[in-house]
Amino acid sequence: MSATTTLNCLSNGSFALVKEVVAEGLTRRRLLDLGLVPGTKVEVIRRSPAGDPIAFNIRGAVIALRRDVAGQVLVSPWK
């Protein structure tokens, strides 16, 4: 079983499966509503020229999340 990491630690071009959203409150709801439910495959597309935020392909839409927000999503890298 592959190791658990957070969404912000993955490099561009890599894929991961969502394990758990560890945020609380509104941020948690937002992340879930974006489709980051357990089992979802996420692709890391790119980083902003300034390094933050990071753009992900989440269920077919390109969505940018700030690093600290992405850091609240636990994932396991997917090959």
Binding site: L26, R29, R30, L32, D33, L34
Partner: peptide, 8 residues
């Protein structure tokens, strides 16, 4: 909206 759940 993306959803009707998150109380925005």
């Amino acid at each position: 909206t993306y959803s009707l759940l998150s109380n925005s």
